[in-house]
Design a protein around this nucleic acid. Structure first.
Lengths: 259, 259
DNA sequence: AAGTGGTCTAGACCACAAT
DNA sequence: TTGTGGTCTAGACCACTTT
């Protein structure tokens, strides 16, 4: 298994990785203590830790504090499908139900959802200004939410509206918009018909780690969704999900239209 | 900036992170040598390295070998848009041009593309079998590609076809399919009209690191695209991109149809 | 040749969680 | 109380890249 030109910590990591993938170490089972591994490999604890940190970064094993130690991470299948394709049928459904879009989707998957909303007015950061086609230092209404599933933090969801559109409307109030932002904006005369999703990933900054309780080695998925009328972009939603608790899903039919 | 309860390496990391975000250290600029930082913080090189590794994992700074040292990573805007929505107009365009879909899209963005194709027939892994709705151990034709942009590895792209569909066709031959897989399959009588994209992210396994030359701290984006006729799933494409060289983009109009 | 980061050692002390 | 991982030290040698 170990190549000749592999450094020691890589060889240790490869060996443990092999134990895990072959299920000699099963999900939930304890990783041997660092000092045991150091003895077995006739090396220092530092080298063992280097290997273990690599496996943690790959998401294969948990962090371990106190006497509990580390375990093979239970690679539960992703537990939430964030369906991204927004259809008029879905929107209509929500308007009847009168609940927030996020809560509706969670309920459909048998999960209990909640969220904190905080509304501010501020200058648009460069990435926001560019997507909303605002001048530098243009003002935006920001709805900042941390969303929870079954009491656990799940994602951060910030929505930005150009101030000239949102100021003085319910978008600038820190209350839920039961019919959904899209329907409400349509009632204000801004009918979003064109959407762009941009998705990227990176390892999280410490702020994200704290706020969303992200384990070491778990990257975040970031989505920028821009909603446009036929005239201009009117809404930008930036969502940050820890990658261990979500899978993003888009579905579409190509039978009748170009996309 | 530094909290009282922050451990030392976190304080060092926070300080450097602040230097970078405030552009006291600009993209491309050198990070001070580890021994300089150790002296400045009156700590050991090991602690400095711990901080620097954290920033590397966040994708903020490069790895550095030899006398060159480390630099602030040039966070050039992502250099490739993976246009995900396949329109009939685009397909038609490709059939005229007679080039592979990947090569066409890259050329449009001013990049030079190439790829290696390797075709095998094998048993479907569980994740493949589930999405293609095949029985366990069902057989699939696999087209495995590593795709390159301007000579650099860009992504891995594996396409799986149920063997009963693909065996004996050009899909099982290791040649390009200039008109694109979708058009060719349509000519075989499999008209894909429904698509599902699932996107997730994780930190890469060592295989990915080697094959795609992924720098430390860069996660991978993984897309499962399932193509279905009105009857059944007929194609699964699994693409793995290092997250530092791609942004996935979906665009759609909601004027005329449900998606 | 010189200076950088990459690997590694053999210790130390502490915080935490299970027993 | 005990064993675990988390942090940290003060060195060492090597590989690599630029000068």
């Amino acid at each position: 298994m170990a190549n000749g030109d592999q450094v020691l910590w890589e060889a240790v990591a490869a060996s443990l990785r092999d134990d895990i993938s072959s299920e000699r170490l099963r999900p939930g089972e304890d990783i041997p203590p660092e000092l045991d591994l150091a003895k077995r490999w006739a090396t220092s604890r530092t080298t063992i830790r280097r290997a273990i940190e690599a496996l943690t970064a790959e998401g294969l094993i948990t962090e371990g504090r106190g006497r509990r130690g580390r375990q093979v991470r239970d690679s539960k299948p992703f537990d939430f499908y964030a369906v991204q394709s927004e259809s008029r049928a879905r929107m209509a459904e929500r308007m009847v139900l009168g609940t927030d879009a996020w809560v509706t989707e969670a309920a459909k998957q048998g999960r209990q959802a909640s969220q904190n909303i905080e509304v501010t007015i501020s200058e648009a950061a460069p990435d926001v200004a560019r997507r909303l086609e605002l001048p530098a230092n243009g003002r935006v209404v920001v709805r900042r939410r941390v969303r929870f599933l079954d009491g656990e933090p799940h994602d951060r969801n910030n929505t930005y509206y150009p101030a000239d559109i949102a100021e003085g409307t319910r978008l600038a109030q820190p209350e839920d918009i039961p019919e959904g932002g899209i329907a409400y904006m349509a009632s204000l005369g801004y009918d979003q018909t064109r959407f762009t999703d941009e998705v990227s990933a990176r390892n999280p900054a410490p702020d994200n780690v704290r706020e969303l309780r992200i384990p070491r080695g778990v990257p975040v998925l970031i989505q920028y969704r821009t909603g446009c009328t036929t005239e201009r972009p009117v809404k930008l939603t930036v969502t940050t999900w820890p990658a261990d608790r979500v899978r993003l899903v888009w579905e579409w039919d190509d039978t009748d239209a170009d996309h």
